[in-house]
């Protein structure tokens, strides 16, 4: 009888525990929302300068490295995720041809963050625009809003994701600027992979950084600068 009683108590305890699991996330979220100083500081703004003169038509090394680093299939069907793609552009009036990589431009005023109903799209203090897949409900409004078509929707169940890059069916994803590498002090995979060193990664806010110095000395543009979103990815030679 007493044995039965302890078991019953145990059962009640565990069910209470389960109830707590259900409620706790909300309570806890509330706690962390205010709280500690940010680890990624706004003194830093990560960005890239891409030298299109050094970017070869037909070379796909950055895209391949991106796919490998983040565990993307590399498929190019309309339903496959492409965080990074090479675009070949040709000036209609002059005929000048250029090739360049295109991905999330990590805007200072990201439209995807503005439109996201749940706040799943967000910008870290250091300027990296991310999707919090724990909150994303898969409405795809950010894909409609992005002027660069930088985002992909995961159309199928995935398996064997990379431990550092969780991704899953039914949520939207895009270039993370290899945030898991940047937080460890490394370069994004594409910047490292480029054989011509066409992608320069660094802190735009640090006047002494290589990227800031180069931005001061060469002419660079932001894509769709007319929209005044101030992207962190800059292009040289366009």
């Amino acid at each position: 009888m007493s044995d039965h009683d302890t078991q019953r108590r145990q059962f009640l305890k565990t069910s209470l525990g389960a109830a707590a699991v259900a409620i706790a996330p909300g309570m806890l979220l509330f706690d962390t929302a205010h709280g500690k100083t940010e680890a990624d500081s706004s003194k830093v703004r990560w960005g890239m300068l891409i030298d299109t003169a050094q970017c070869k038509t037909g070379c796909n090394d950055c895209v391949t490295a991106c796919n490998k680093e983040n565990g993307l299939s590399g498929g190019t069907l309309p339903t496959d995720s492409q965080w990074m793609r090479k675009i070949d552009i040709k000036d209609i009036s002059s005929g000048r041809e250029t090739s360049l990589p295109m991905m999330c431009q990590h805007c200072e005023e990201p439209p995807c963050v503005d439109v996201c109903p749940t706040g799943a799209s967000f910008k870290r203090a250091d300027g990296i625009v991310l999707v919090d897949r724990h909150r994303c409900i898969g409405c795809r409004y950010c894909m409609m809003a992005c002027p660069y078509k930088a985002r992909s929707f995961v159309h199928e169940p995935l398996h064997d994701q990379k431990p550092d890059v969780p991704r899953g069916k039914g949520t939207v994803e895009s270039c993370t600027l290899c945030v898991h590498r940047v937080d460890k002090g490394q370069q994004p995979a594409c910047a490292q992979a480029c054989p011509n060193k066409a992608i320069l990664f660094g802190n735009l806010n640090d006047a002494n950084s290589e990227i800031a110095q180069k931005l001061r000395s060469v002419a660079s543009v932001q894509i769709r600068a007319d929209m005044q979103l101030n992207p962190g990815i800059r292009y040289q030679g366009l």
Binding site: L28, K36, E38, A39, H134
Partner: peptide, 25 residues
């Protein structure tokens, strides 16, 4: 464990505070 994981999750995703010891990985 779930409280630790959720706490770590939000810190890591939103603020870049990566406490490896209590990470899911």
């Amino acid at each position: 464990h779930m409280h630790l994981l959720i706490h770590q999750r939000d810190e890591a995703v939103r603020k870049g505070i990566r406490d490896e010891q209590i990470s899911l990985k």
